[in-house]
Write a protein that binds this DNA or RNA. Structure first.
Lengths: 119, 119
DNA sequence: CCGTATCCTAAATGATACTG
DNA sequence: CAGTATCATTTAGGATACGG
């Protein structure tokens, strides 16, 4: 039973129909998903590998965001059929298609860092 | 007087030196800044115009995010020297340089929406 | 109309302990 | 290792009222 399905629910609903750009940032605009997806696109596969590549992430957020990436169809989880129960995660075609966005974000940042020398 | 400058501060510090991509998403990865900046790039200038273009944003967030965009050097606020005290906001070159990132995010979303018909 | 301050709720994240 | 649950804290966002 929702306690407050009243006033501020209108914003949430409209958020869906918002500018398409918002949709992209809803998928990628949190603290860890961009990097996780990027690392997956780069070829990393297991949670352990990811955690090595992104040491400052907590285990909770790593698994949580991996799950959300799977939920959103950007990543698939393949539970290893071999005896070791170490799964691999890899981007779906949809996830791969976000590479250009991530690339743009990354390029921009690197360019800033480079050009900031003579500021 | 910081009450807890202890344990979880280490993450914040490291966040700065994080993957450059994170930096981009720190600037753009919230609910409103991408659209606001996009609209500014499209040529809208006054808060009133922006509010018309993005009706569901609250005034608080509009002004707050405008201020943050200014703080981060992506937008400049030009306080009108004429008698009417209506300022104009416009992207700085740095802000303009984010157009490619926003464009990528927008293109991706539109492409998804288009291709989703025959899913 | 511009802009801010205050209060409040909700969402995101971290710390930690636990299971398989 | 992989993955989840619980708790506590932080942060973002909205409602609202106020001042220029």
């Amino acid at each position: 039973m929702p306690k407050t399905t009243s006033t501020n629910q209108r914003n949430k609903i409209q958020l869906i129909t918002d500018c398409p750009m918002t949709h992209t940032f809803n998928l990628l605009g949190n603290r860890w998903r961009p990097i996780i997806l990027w690392k997956l696109i780069e070829g990393l596969q297991s949670p352990a590998e990811l955690h090595l590549a992104i040491p400052i992430i907590t285990r909770k957020m790593l698994y949580q965001d991996l799950k959300e990436l799977v939920t959103h169809g950007l990543v698939i989880k393949i539970t290893s059929t071999s005896r070791k129960h170490i799964p691999i995660y890899k981007p779906t075609p949809l996830g791969q298609s976000l590479k250009s966005v991530l690339r743009a974000a990354l390029d921009w940042a690197e360019q800033q860092k480079t050009g900031a020398e003579d500021a």
